[in-house]
Design a protein around this nucleic acid. Structure first.
Ligand SMILES: [Mn+2]
Ligand SMILES: [Mn+2]
Ligand SMILES: [Zn+2]
Ligand SMILES: [Zn+2]
Lengths: 141, 141
DNA sequence: AACTTAAAGTAGAATAATTCTCTTCTAATA
DNA sequence: TATTAGAAGAGAATTATTCTACTTTAAGTT
Protein backbone atom coordinates (compact mmCIF):
# COMPACT_ATOMS: atom_id res chain seq x y z
CA UNK A 1 0.00 0.00 0.00
CA UNK A 2 1.56 3.26 -1.16
CA UNK A 3 1.35 6.47 0.83
CA UNK A 4 -0.86 7.96 -1.84
CA UNK A 5 -3.44 5.24 -1.44
CA UNK A 6 -3.54 6.00 2.27
CA UNK A 7 -3.87 9.72 1.58
CA UNK A 8 -6.75 9.01 -0.76
CA UNK A 9 -8.55 6.96 1.87
CA UNK A 10 -8.43 9.97 4.17
CA UNK A 11 -9.44 12.45 1.47
CA UNK A 12 -12.33 10.23 0.40
CA UNK A 13 -13.72 10.40 3.92
CA UNK A 14 -13.30 14.16 4.08
CA UNK A 15 -10.55 13.89 6.69
CA UNK A 16 -7.60 16.26 6.70
CA UNK A 17 -4.43 14.56 5.61
CA UNK A 18 -1.83 14.83 8.37
CA UNK A 19 1.48 13.01 8.85
CA UNK A 20 0.12 11.50 12.08
CA UNK A 21 -2.96 10.08 10.41
CA UNK A 22 -0.91 8.67 7.56
CA UNK A 23 1.53 7.02 9.96
CA UNK A 24 -1.18 5.50 12.10
CA UNK A 25 -3.16 4.05 9.24
CA UNK A 26 0.04 2.83 7.64
CA UNK A 27 1.13 1.21 10.90
CA UNK A 28 -2.08 -0.77 11.26
CA UNK A 29 -1.88 -1.91 7.63
CA UNK A 30 1.79 -2.88 7.86
CA UNK A 31 1.65 -4.53 11.28
CA UNK A 32 -1.30 -6.52 9.95
CA UNK A 33 -1.86 -8.30 13.20
CA UNK A 34 -4.69 -6.52 14.95
CA UNK A 35 -2.34 -4.28 16.94
CA UNK A 36 -3.11 -2.48 20.18
CA UNK A 37 -2.70 1.28 20.54
CA UNK A 38 0.59 0.59 22.27
CA UNK A 39 1.84 -1.60 19.40
CA UNK A 40 0.99 1.20 16.99
CA UNK A 41 2.72 3.85 19.12
CA UNK A 42 5.89 1.74 19.44
CA UNK A 43 5.97 1.09 15.72
CA UNK A 44 5.49 4.74 14.73
CA UNK A 45 7.93 6.17 17.26
CA UNK A 46 10.79 4.34 15.56
CA UNK A 47 10.55 6.92 12.79
CA UNK A 48 8.51 9.66 14.39
CA UNK A 49 9.56 9.72 18.05
CA UNK A 50 7.46 12.72 19.03
CA UNK A 51 3.95 11.61 18.18
CA UNK A 52 1.72 12.13 21.22
CA UNK A 53 -0.13 9.25 22.82
CA UNK A 54 -3.36 11.25 22.85
CA UNK A 55 -3.02 11.86 19.13
CA UNK A 56 -2.87 8.16 18.44
CA UNK A 57 -6.00 7.50 20.47
CA UNK A 58 -7.85 10.38 18.86
CA UNK A 59 -6.85 9.36 15.35
CA UNK A 60 -7.85 5.75 16.05
CA UNK A 61 -11.30 6.98 17.10
CA UNK A 62 -11.57 9.12 13.98
CA UNK A 63 -10.54 6.23 11.74
CA UNK A 64 -13.08 3.90 13.36
CA UNK A 65 -15.76 6.58 13.12
CA UNK A 66 -15.03 7.00 9.41
CA UNK A 67 -14.88 3.27 8.75
CA UNK A 68 -11.26 3.17 7.68
CA UNK A 69 -10.42 0.71 10.46
CA UNK A 70 -12.42 -1.46 12.86
CA UNK A 71 -12.16 -2.45 16.48
CA UNK A 72 -11.63 -6.15 17.09
CA UNK A 73 -13.64 -7.77 19.88
CA UNK A 74 -11.54 -9.48 22.53
CA UNK A 75 -11.85 -10.53 26.13
CA UNK A 76 -8.84 -8.46 27.18
CA UNK A 77 -8.96 -4.91 28.41
CA UNK A 78 -7.07 -3.17 25.65
CA UNK A 79 -8.49 -2.43 22.28
CA UNK A 80 -7.20 -3.94 19.06
CA UNK A 81 -7.58 -2.53 15.58
CA UNK A 82 -7.95 -3.95 12.09
CA UNK A 83 -7.40 -2.16 8.79
CA UNK A 84 -9.01 -4.90 6.70
CA UNK A 85 -12.52 -3.67 6.07
CA UNK A 86 -13.72 -6.45 3.79
CA UNK A 87 -15.82 -9.12 5.43
CA UNK A 88 -13.65 -11.68 7.22
CA UNK A 89 -13.47 -13.73 10.38
CA UNK A 90 -10.85 -14.20 13.07
CA UNK A 91 -8.79 -17.06 14.43
CA UNK A 92 -8.11 -16.49 18.13
CA UNK A 93 -5.31 -18.42 19.80
CA UNK A 94 -6.53 -19.99 23.03
CA UNK A 95 -3.12 -19.67 24.71
CA UNK A 96 -1.81 -16.34 23.45
CA UNK A 97 -3.08 -13.01 22.16
CA UNK A 98 -2.48 -13.92 18.55
CA UNK A 99 -5.39 -13.11 16.24
CA UNK A 100 -5.25 -13.97 12.54
CA UNK A 101 -7.60 -13.24 9.69
CA UNK A 102 -9.75 -15.93 8.15
CA UNK A 103 -11.28 -15.17 4.77
CA UNK A 104 -13.83 -17.65 3.42
CA UNK A 105 -16.42 -16.63 0.86
CA UNK A 106 -17.91 -20.11 0.70
CA UNK A 107 -18.63 -19.88 4.42
CA UNK A 108 -20.08 -16.39 4.05
CA UNK A 109 -22.47 -17.68 1.38
CA UNK A 110 -23.42 -20.64 3.54
CA UNK A 111 -24.21 -18.39 6.50
CA UNK A 112 -26.04 -15.86 4.40
CA UNK A 113 -28.29 -18.56 2.91
CA UNK A 114 -28.80 -20.18 6.28
CA UNK A 115 -29.99 -17.02 7.98
CA UNK A 116 -31.90 -15.80 4.94
CA UNK A 117 -34.20 -18.79 5.19
CA UNK A 118 -34.15 -19.17 8.94
CA UNK A 119 -33.95 -15.64 10.32
CA UNK A 120 -33.80 -14.65 13.97
CA UNK A 121 -37.03 -13.49 15.62
CA UNK A 122 -37.13 -9.75 16.42
CA UNK A 123 -33.59 -9.23 15.16
CA UNK A 124 -32.32 -7.68 11.95
CA UNK A 125 -28.90 -9.08 11.09
CA UNK A 126 -26.37 -6.56 9.82
CA UNK A 127 -23.16 -8.53 10.03
CA UNK A 128 -21.91 -11.94 11.11
CA UNK A 129 -18.42 -12.65 12.33
CA UNK A 130 -16.95 -15.91 13.51
CA UNK A 131 -14.61 -16.10 16.44
CA UNK A 132 -12.74 -19.31 15.75
CA UNK A 133 -10.84 -20.22 18.88
CA UNK A 134 -8.06 -22.79 18.88
CA UNK A 135 -4.37 -23.44 18.45
CA UNK A 136 -2.00 -22.37 15.73
CA UNK A 137 0.18 -25.29 14.62
CA UNK A 138 2.96 -23.10 13.29
CA UNK A 139 4.42 -19.94 14.68
CA UNK A 140 4.20 -16.90 12.49
CA UNK A 141 6.85 -16.62 9.74
CA UNK B 1 -31.61 -22.05 39.96
CA UNK B 2 -31.68 -22.85 43.66
CA UNK B 3 -28.91 -21.85 46.04
CA UNK B 4 -28.01 -25.50 46.50
CA UNK B 5 -27.33 -25.95 42.82
CA UNK B 6 -24.98 -22.99 42.96
CA UNK B 7 -23.25 -24.40 46.04
CA UNK B 8 -22.79 -27.69 44.24
CA UNK B 9 -21.19 -26.00 41.25
CA UNK B 10 -18.60 -24.52 43.62
CA UNK B 11 -18.05 -27.73 45.54
CA UNK B 12 -17.67 -29.71 42.31
CA UNK B 13 -14.82 -27.45 41.31
CA UNK B 14 -13.17 -27.74 44.71
CA UNK B 15 -13.88 -24.12 45.55
CA UNK B 16 -14.75 -23.04 49.05
CA UNK B 17 -18.38 -22.09 49.35
CA UNK B 18 -18.65 -18.51 50.58
CA UNK B 19 -21.61 -16.12 50.67
CA UNK B 20 -19.75 -13.81 48.29
CA UNK B 21 -19.15 -16.52 45.70
CA UNK B 22 -22.75 -17.65 45.90
CA UNK B 23 -24.03 -14.10 45.46
CA UNK B 24 -21.78 -13.37 42.52
CA UNK B 25 -22.61 -16.55 40.63
CA UNK B 26 -26.28 -16.10 41.44
CA UNK B 27 -26.15 -12.49 40.22
CA UNK B 28 -24.70 -13.44 36.84
CA UNK B 29 -27.29 -16.20 36.43
CA UNK B 30 -30.22 -14.01 37.47
CA UNK B 31 -29.18 -10.89 35.58
CA UNK B 32 -28.81 -13.14 32.54
CA UNK B 33 -27.61 -10.33 30.33
CA UNK B 34 -23.86 -10.60 30.17
CA UNK B 35 -23.36 -8.14 33.03
CA UNK B 36 -20.27 -6.10 33.76
CA UNK B 37 -18.48 -6.26 37.11
CA UNK B 38 -20.25 -3.01 38.01
CA UNK B 39 -23.68 -4.44 37.15
CA UNK B 40 -22.93 -7.40 39.39
CA UNK B 41 -21.71 -5.21 42.25
CA UNK B 42 -24.79 -2.98 42.06
CA UNK B 43 -27.10 -5.98 42.03
CA UNK B 44 -25.46 -7.69 44.98
CA UNK B 45 -25.14 -4.57 47.14
CA UNK B 46 -28.92 -4.26 47.28
CA UNK B 47 -28.90 -7.20 49.68
CA UNK B 48 -25.28 -7.34 50.74
CA UNK B 49 -24.10 -3.72 50.89
CA UNK B 50 -20.64 -4.46 52.24
CA UNK B 51 -19.19 -6.74 49.60
CA UNK B 52 -15.81 -5.37 48.50
CA UNK B 53 -15.14 -4.44 44.90
CA UNK B 54 -11.87 -6.36 44.92
CA UNK B 55 -13.70 -9.46 46.11
CA UNK B 56 -16.02 -9.32 43.12
CA UNK B 57 -13.12 -9.06 40.70
CA UNK B 58 -11.22 -11.84 42.43
CA UNK B 59 -14.24 -14.13 42.49
CA UNK B 60 -14.97 -13.41 38.83
CA UNK B 61 -11.42 -14.47 37.97
CA UNK B 62 -11.77 -17.63 40.05
CA UNK B 63 -15.07 -18.51 38.39
CA UNK B 64 -13.64 -17.98 34.90
CA UNK B 65 -10.56 -20.00 35.84
CA UNK B 66 -12.76 -22.85 37.04
CA UNK B 67 -15.05 -22.70 34.03
CA UNK B 68 -18.18 -21.76 35.92
CA UNK B 69 -18.57 -18.56 33.90
CA UNK B 70 -17.02 -17.12 30.75
CA UNK B 71 -15.84 -13.75 29.59
CA UNK B 72 -17.74 -12.31 26.65
CA UNK B 73 -15.71 -10.66 23.90
CA UNK B 74 -16.66 -7.05 23.20
CA UNK B 75 -15.11 -3.95 21.70
CA UNK B 76 -15.64 -1.92 24.86
CA UNK B 77 -13.17 -1.58 27.69
CA UNK B 78 -15.04 -3.28 30.46
CA UNK B 79 -15.41 -7.00 30.76
CA UNK B 80 -18.72 -8.81 30.57
CA UNK B 81 -19.54 -12.21 31.99
CA UNK B 82 -21.78 -15.11 31.03
CA UNK B 83 -22.97 -17.96 33.25
CA UNK B 84 -24.29 -20.03 30.36
CA UNK B 85 -21.56 -22.55 29.67
CA UNK B 86 -23.26 -24.58 26.98
CA UNK B 87 -22.31 -23.76 23.43
CA UNK B 88 -24.17 -20.72 22.16
CA UNK B 89 -23.71 -17.57 20.11
CA UNK B 90 -24.38 -13.89 20.73
CA UNK B 91 -26.55 -11.21 19.20
CA UNK B 92 -24.84 -7.84 19.59
CA UNK B 93 -26.90 -4.68 19.17
CA UNK B 94 -25.15 -2.26 16.82
CA UNK B 95 -26.49 0.80 18.64
CA UNK B 96 -26.41 -0.20 22.30
CA UNK B 97 -24.54 -2.53 24.62
CA UNK B 98 -27.26 -5.14 24.61
CA UNK B 99 -26.02 -8.70 24.08
CA UNK B 100 -28.45 -11.60 23.88
CA UNK B 101 -27.91 -15.33 23.63
CA UNK B 102 -28.55 -17.20 20.44
CA UNK B 103 -28.87 -20.99 20.70
CA UNK B 104 -29.01 -22.95 17.46
CA UNK B 105 -28.02 -26.59 17.30
CA UNK B 106 -28.80 -26.86 13.61
CA UNK B 107 -26.26 -24.09 12.98
CA UNK B 108 -23.71 -25.75 15.23
CA UNK B 109 -24.05 -28.97 13.23
CA UNK B 110 -23.74 -27.09 9.97
CA UNK B 111 -20.55 -25.38 11.12
CA UNK B 112 -19.08 -28.53 12.57
CA UNK B 113 -19.64 -30.43 9.32
CA UNK B 114 -18.36 -27.52 7.24
CA UNK B 115 -15.07 -27.26 9.12
CA UNK B 116 -14.71 -31.00 9.53
CA UNK B 117 -14.45 -31.41 5.78
CA UNK B 118 -12.77 -28.13 5.02
CA UNK B 119 -10.42 -27.50 7.94
CA UNK B 120 -8.14 -24.50 8.42
CA UNK B 121 -4.46 -24.92 7.55
CA UNK B 122 -2.13 -24.96 10.55
CA UNK B 123 -4.98 -24.35 12.97
CA UNK B 124 -6.75 -26.72 15.34
CA UNK B 125 -10.28 -25.49 16.02
CA UNK B 126 -11.43 -25.76 19.62
CA UNK B 127 -14.54 -23.63 19.58
CA UNK B 128 -16.55 -21.49 17.18
CA UNK B 129 -18.71 -18.59 18.24
CA UNK B 130 -20.75 -16.26 16.09
CA UNK B 131 -20.97 -12.58 16.77
CA UNK B 132 -24.22 -11.65 15.10
CA UNK B 133 -24.39 -7.88 14.92
CA UNK B 134 -27.64 -6.05 14.19
CA UNK B 135 -30.76 -4.45 15.57
CA UNK B 136 -33.26 -5.76 18.05
CA UNK B 137 -36.79 -5.10 16.83
CA UNK B 138 -38.34 -5.24 20.30
CA UNK B 139 -37.09 -3.88 23.57
CA UNK B 140 -36.54 -6.38 26.28
CA UNK B 141 -39.64 -7.49 28.19
C1' DA C 1 2.38 33.30 -1.98
C1' DA C 2 0.46 35.15 2.25
C1' DC C 3 -3.97 35.09 5.09
C1' DT C 4 -7.43 32.80 7.67
C1' DT C 5 -9.45 29.58 10.61
C1' DA C 6 -11.54 25.27 11.78
C1' DA C 7 -9.64 21.19 12.69
C1' DA C 8 -5.82 18.56 14.48
C1' DG C 9 -1.84 17.78 17.46
C1' DT C 10 0.43 18.04 22.00
C1' DA C 11 1.80 17.58 27.07
C1' DG C 12 0.44 16.47 31.02
C1' DA C 13 -3.31 15.90 34.29
C1' DA C 14 -7.37 13.27 35.10
C1' DT C 15 -10.31 9.28 34.93
C1' DA C 16 -12.02 4.72 35.65
C1' DA C 17 -11.82 -0.21 35.29
C1' DT C 18 -9.14 -3.33 37.35
C1' DT C 19 -5.37 -5.16 40.29
C1' DC C 20 -2.40 -5.22 44.22
C1' DT C 21 -0.91 -5.22 49.12
C1' DC C 22 -1.50 -6.23 53.43
C1' DT C 23 -4.51 -7.32 57.17
C1' DT C 24 -8.48 -9.72 59.07
C1' DC C 25 -11.81 -13.25 58.75
C1' DT C 26 -13.86 -17.80 57.94
C1' DA C 27 -14.99 -22.44 55.69
C1' DA C 28 -13.66 -26.81 56.03
C1' DT C 29 -11.48 -30.30 58.29
C1' DA C 30 -9.79 -32.86 62.36
C1' DT D 1 -13.55 -26.26 69.39
C1' DA D 2 -9.14 -25.47 67.42
C1' DT D 3 -6.46 -25.07 63.30
C1' DT D 4 -5.21 -23.05 59.08
C1' DA D 5 -5.20 -22.35 54.18
C1' DG D 6 -7.76 -19.87 51.48
C1' DA D 7 -10.92 -15.97 50.96
C1' DA D 8 -12.66 -11.35 51.94
C1' DG D 9 -11.84 -6.61 52.90
C1' DA D 10 -10.08 -1.55 52.64
C1' DG D 11 -7.75 1.40 50.34
C1' DA D 12 -3.72 2.44 47.51
C1' DA D 13 -1.73 1.55 43.08
C1' DT D 14 -1.76 0.62 38.31
C1' DT D 15 -2.76 1.29 33.55
C1' DA D 16 -5.32 1.89 29.33
C1' DT D 17 -7.64 5.57 27.86
C1' DT D 18 -9.70 10.31 27.92
C1' DC D 19 -9.76 15.12 28.93
C1' DT D 20 -8.12 19.98 29.13
C1' DA D 21 -6.05 23.86 27.70
C1' DC D 22 -3.31 25.12 24.95
C1' DT D 23 -0.28 25.49 20.18
C1' DT D 24 0.15 24.22 15.49
C1' DT D 25 -1.22 23.23 10.82
C1' DA D 26 -3.90 21.78 6.52
C1' DA D 27 -6.29 23.55 3.13
C1' DG D 28 -9.24 26.80 1.36
C1' DT D 29 -9.45 32.05 0.20
C1' DT D 30 -7.68 36.28 -1.19
MN1 LIG E 1 -12.48 -5.72 25.43
MN1 LIG F 1 -9.47 0.32 31.20
ZN1 LIG G 1 -8.88 -9.00 10.79
ZN1 LIG H 1 -24.32 -15.79 26.44
Amino acid sequence: MKINEIKNKLVDKGLKVTPQRISILEAIIKLNNHPTAENIIDYIRKNQPNIATATVYKVLDALVENELIRKVKTDRDFMRYDAIMENHHHLYCSVSDRIEDYHDDELNDLLEKYFESKGIPDFKIEDIKLQIIGRFMKSKK
